[in-house]
């Protein structure tokens, strides 16, 4: 582990600031993209092109009455919405945004991300339980079951990337993709990771903890005001974080395609600007994918989600991992 330097603090500060803002921007983007898909205009009244709409949304949420159900568990009900926000914020600590631009490089960064990312579901499950509503409870239980089922294929998909990097550090994972992106070397895991990232972020088609139509909002049925706002923002932060992880693990992080082969040497500042722009562009694309999917396709049923997770994704990811392990072993020992 490297010593904490001033750069770390600066990067962490900027990253957190950007992540918080990106949630607001994602809300705006979601509404505009949804409107575009549905032949509408979307928000276009508050500020230029409706850009201040998220601010208006948050102000509205702050002014709403904060209701706790009469027989709910008040403490947990209040703590629950904070958990997903914290876990989303904690992930940026290890993600490299550019060459040398990261808050910290811990040698088990990948494990850290997997651990932190799956903690977010506690907020949803506890919130569902503390609300004293059957709908919320069902939503919370669905979230827990879904998280357990999709954590395994996700972990295995990530593990098959680690085979190429040979290290659990994010920096090494990204640098191993300087020439060959993981999506080219390991396309099956890329698909599995994207699918599970959708499930982890509780987005359509895996939004059954929320299930607006049968569970009427699921875990956040009984939430109002800024407590609901936290769940709301956390969802978008998880979308952004999920996009960052997809980018980092499979789409070369801050590297341009085959950058190692053709990208000339350049100055530190120019390289930093290029790296961050590339990273942001990729993240924006995947965030758009999240939104695009959400407004286009229907939602799975509980048993279908379980079937997909345990009977399809898990065996495929196991065999993919084993197959790649054998190939990588032979490559290193006999060919290269």
């Amino acid at each position: 582990m490297e010593p904490v330097t001033t750069t770390s603090y600066i990067v962490l500060g900027i990253a957190l600031f950007m992540l918080l803002n990106s949630a607001a921007l994602a809300v705006y983007a979601e509404r505009r993209v949804a409107a575009f898909i549905q032949n509408r205009w979307g928000p276009n009244r508050v500020g230029p092109y409706g850009l201040f709409q998220p601010i208006a949304d948050v102000v509205k949420l702050l002014l709403k009455e904060d209701v706790t159900p009469a027989r709910g568990f008040k403490t947990i009900h209040a703590i629950a919405p904070m958990i997903p926000v914290f876990t989303a914020l904690m992930t940026v600590a290890v993600i490299p945004f550019g060459d040398g631009l990261y808050a910290t490089d811990i040698n088990s960064g990948v494990l850290y991300i997997l651990a932190i990312n799956s903690l977010g579901v506690y907020g949803i499950t506890l919130g569902g339980w503390a609300s004293n509503s059957k709908y919320s409870l069902l939503g919370g239980l669905r979230a827990a079951a879904q998280m357990i089922s999709y954590e395994l294929p996700m972990g295995l998909a990530v593990a098959s990337c680690i085979l190429f990097a040979g290290s659990l550090s994010f920096i090494d994972v990204v640098n191993s993709q300087e020439v060959w992106w993981n999506v080219i070397r390991n396309p099956i895991a890329a698909v599995i990771f994207i699918v599970t990232a959708f499930a982890e972020a509780n987005r359509t088609p895996f939004d059954l903890p929320e299930a607006e139509h049968e569970l009427v909002g699921g875990y956040h049925t009984e939430y109002s005001s800024m407590k609901f706002g936290m769940f709301f923002l956390a969802e978008y932060m998880h979308v952004v974080v999920g996009s960052m992880l997809i980018t980092t693990f499979f789409f070369g992080g801050y590297h341009l395609p085959f950058a190692g082969l053709w990208l000339p040497e350049m100055g530190v500042t120019a390289k930093a600007i290029l790296d961050v722009s590339v990273f942001v562009l990729k993240t924006v694309f995947f965030a758009f994918l999240f939104i695009w999917v959400r407004w286009t396709i229907p939602r799975f049923k509980y048993n279908q989600v379980m079937k997909l997770g345990w009977k399809r994704l898990l065996p495929i990811s196991i065999f993919n991992f084993l197959g790649l392990a054998v190939i990588v072993y032979f490559w290193h020992h006999y060919i290269a």
Binding site: I37, T204, P205, A211, H213, T296, I297, P298, R299
Partner: peptide, 16 residues
Amino acid sequence: MVQDTGAVSFFLWTFR
């Protein structure tokens, strides 16, 4: 019906 399965946009397309 399609909205109940979770595809929200469809509702607006049929409403048009």
